[in-house]
């Protein structure tokens, strides 16, 4: 099943078997991508939306000097660029971070789903509103938190999202991002990130080793970063 993780532990129970089958039928192709592959270019017309089955994808914007700000990191189960369906083009680039498996849904098939399936339409809308909620949380992170709290907050979000789709047990998860990626997500240099990761390790809160995160004290990590996961609308 392609959409096995879509809205898992969120509003999955509202997705009827019939709607799920229609969503599965809407997929044009499933592709394996390499790491660091551009999926959607900013300002160019797009005719398909990407559902992430495996791996990590980011949205990003580059400044005039080529310095990058990640504006979202997506995990399996995310319908990554559903925004491009009503917008017709994106205002940012979308690229894989590690190797990924994606499903491509042509917009004309989404047109049909929207006409025929109001409940599925509402859930797809819910999915894009989740992205909006995450963007608000990222603004809070970058505007309000100091360096160590920003990094802690980032990991709290990734952990919660991965746990919702069964890819974190609350303590351990695979994490293919580099310190440079983390810097671009948290608005810091990679040297700064390195120091903050060391601080988190020395406080016995979490550590990153060989593309794997181990969180020793999730409650303390959340307290440190003012993290409240309610914006993710994860149930249970």
């Amino acid at each position: 099943m392609i959409f096995a993780d879509f809205l898992r532990n969120r509003r999955r129970e509202q997705l009827s078997a019939s709607d799920l089958a229609a969503l599965e039928d809407s997929v044009w192709d499933v592709q394996k991508t390499r790491a660091r592959q551009l999926i959607a270019h900013a300002r160019q017309p797009i005719r398909m939306s990407t559902y992430l089955m495996e791996g990590f994808i980011c949205r990003y914007m580059d400044d005039r000097n080529g310095l990058r700000q990640l504006v979202a990191v997506h995990v399996p189960g995310d319908f990554v660029d559903l925004h491009g369906y009503p917008l017709g083009r994106l205002d940012h680039d979308v690229a894989t971070l590690g190797a990924c498996k994606i499903a491509l849904v042509p917009h004309e098939r989404l047109d049909r789903l929207l006409v025929e399936r109001p409940n599925l339409t509402k859930l797809l809308w819910f999915s894009t509103l989740l992205d909006a909620a995450m963007h608000r949380e990222w603004i809070f992170r970058l505007g309000r938190l100091d360096a160590v709290a920003r990094v802690a907050h980032f990991f709290c979000e990734i952990e919660a999202k991965l746990r919702a789709v069964g890819l974190s047990d609350g303590q351990h998860f695979a994490f293919p991002l580099t310190q440079a990626d983390l810097g671009e997500a948290c608005g810091m240099t990679s040297v700064h990130i390195n120091r903050m990761l060391r601080e988190l390790r020395e406080r016995n809160l979490m550590q990153v080793q060989r593309n794997r995160v181990t969180i020793s004290d999730l409650s303390a990590l959340r307290r440190l970063s003012d993290y409240d996961p309610s914006y993710l609308f994860i149930e249970g």
Partner: peptide, 14 residues
């Protein structure tokens, strides 16, 4: 750290 000066906080300064 590594030839850089890092200024952290208060608030969103990093």
């Amino acid at each position: 750290e590594e030839g850089q000066v890092m200024l952290d906080g208060p608030d969103g300064v990093a």
